[in-house]
Design a protein around this nucleic acid. Structure first.
Length: 424
RNA sequence: GGAGAGGUGGCCGAGCGGCUGAAGGCACAGGUUUGCUAAACCUGCGUAGGGGCAACUCUACCGAGGGUUCGAAUCCCUCCCUCUCCGCCA
């Protein structure tokens, strides 16, 4: 959420942001409503003041045993007016809010302006693509041969884009989760959280998922609960409506959760194998930080996500997202894409974003600034570290042998207990 | 699901329909005392939204939303949440 006062004072900036993010929110209408609101507010408040002083007078009169009838009758009129005006005011405020909740975060000045993913800027490449003396297979062919993923029965049980990891496939998934969690906990200093996988409406709103993305989420209607699309949602909400001690910042959490996405808008693209699923596992990192440190923290977050791929020795590159590809709530975002030789394509395995105060304002997450003595919204960030199935793709396709076996990356061997998933 | 208890400021905790934005305590900040630590004492200290360049001032807020009233933290209704007990269950 963007501060109304900020919008009032920086309307052009906000309008540009809306345009660059390809969102729709009528700032002119908002400003007009805001104007009307303040005008009405002054009228009611004046009446309320009148009422308050009169009420005191009445109390006084009654105490002295005098009649207050005249005053009371007078105030009955005022009370009616106040009620009427309050109702009108509430209507205006609702209208304002209904515009406000659709205003996206303003991109950071360093974010490149652009229309869509083709305008994202590659800022880094890491690792050499492995060379093969055979045609690298896509992972789904390997998976079938090795019997480590069961797509068909996933579809039977739940529908398309659901699957079963079986045997060593399931163990690979579990090993990766543990490897990533251990890295973030032990080396990067995050605290592990295992949060709820179903969250309420307030939590979805605070994270910036609602109202925009309601159609993309699974919704348990009876209880009005949503299946989380990412651990970001429950973990960011851990401190909703809280005031955090300045000395406790930054707070860093890492969480493994499954993620549930309806993928309502993603027609026919990337639909094979593990690339796009309705349910997938992910290890997430979330940070609560002081505003002045958030961009520094973003770079650190990015490097911590990168480290997962570096340790797995998987080639990747980093994209700085352009305004048109930036999510609703983010001010800046880096995507990490890993190379998948079987698909002959890059796959997004991590998004590292700074939300600045956008989520904090929606979720009312504050700290007391010791310098100013004031309560301030802190900044939130999060990054995948990493999304599992696509990491599995990268391992399968980069570490494949001619016979279809998968060599296990060194750092995973102690988790897997083996060094190869053999086709034999 | 059934029965009961409760939701007040950063935290704990009082609170008769008007004198309560809210006692008291803790925490925090500044000051005095002090060789250091600790302690004692004094002072200050809610949030949000308006108006005024400013000192300042007004309004709202005691889980949420309605209602009664000239006036509600205090009375009534609805809802939400937490806790305890019972039932059910991993």
């Amino acid at each position: 959420m963007i501060d109304l006062k900020f919008i009032r004072e920086n309307s052009d900036l906000v309008k540009t942001a809306i345009q660059n993010k390809k969102e729709k929110a009528d700032i002119n209408k908002l400003l007009a409503l805001d104007e009307a609101r303040r005008e009405k507010l002054q009228t009611v408040e004046k009446l309320k003041q009148e009422r308050n002083t009169a009420s005191q007078k009445i109390a006084q009169l009654k105490k002295q045993g005098e009649s207050a009838e005249h005053k009371i009758q007078e105030m009955q009129k005022v009370a009616g007016q106040v009620k009427q005006l309050d109702t009108e005011l509430k209507e205006i405020e609702n209208k304002i809010r209904n515009i406000q909740i659709w205003i996206p975060n303003v991109p950071h000045s360093s974010t490149p302006i652009g229309q869509n993913e083709t305008d994202n800027v590659e800022i880094k490449k890491w690792g050499e693509k492995y060379s093969f003396d055979f045609e690298p297979k896509p992972h789904w062919e390997m998976a079938e041969q090795l019997g480590i993923i069961d797509f068909d029965r996933g579809a039977k049980i739940s529908g398309s884009f659901f699957l079963n990891f079986i045997g060593l496939g399931a163990k690979l998934e579990r090993s990766l989760i543990n490897f990533m969690l251990d890295l973030h906990i032990e080396k990067h200093g995050y605290k592990e959280v295992s949060p709820p996988f179903l969250v309420n409406r307030d939590s979805m709103f605070a994270a910036g998922q609602l109202p925009k993305l309601e159609d993309d989420m699974y919704h348990a209607q009876i209880d009005d609960l949503f299946l989380i699309p990412t651990a970001e949602v429950p973990v960011t909400n851990i401190h909703r409506d809280e005031i955090i001690k300045e000395k406790d910042l930054p707070i860093k959490y890492t969480a493994y959760t499954p993620c549930f996405r309806r993928e309502a808008g993603s027609y026919g693209k990337d639909t094979r194998g593990l690339v796009r699923l309705h349910q997938f596992d992910k290890v997430e990192m979330v940070k609560f930080v002081k505003p002045e440190t958030s961009y520094e923290e973003l770079e650190i977050l990015l490097s911590e996500a990168e480290e997962v791929l570096q340790l797995l020795k998987l080639p990747y590159h980093i994209l700085e997202l352009c305004t048109g590809d930036l999510s609703f709530a983010a001010a800046k975002c880096y995507d990490i894409e890993v190379w998948a030789p079987g698909l002959n394509n890059w796959l997004e395995v991590s998004s590292c974003s700074n939300f600045e105060g956008f989520q904090a304002r929606r979720g009312n997450i504050r700290f007391r600034n010791s310098e100013s003595g004031k309560l301030e919204f802190l900044h939130t960030l999060n990054g995948s570290g990493l999304a599992l199935p696509r990491t599995v793709i990268a391992i399968m396709e980069n570490y494949q042998d001619a016979d279809g076996s998968i060599r296990i990356p060194e750092v995973l061997q102690k988790y897997m207990g083996i060094d190869i998933i053999s086709a034999g």
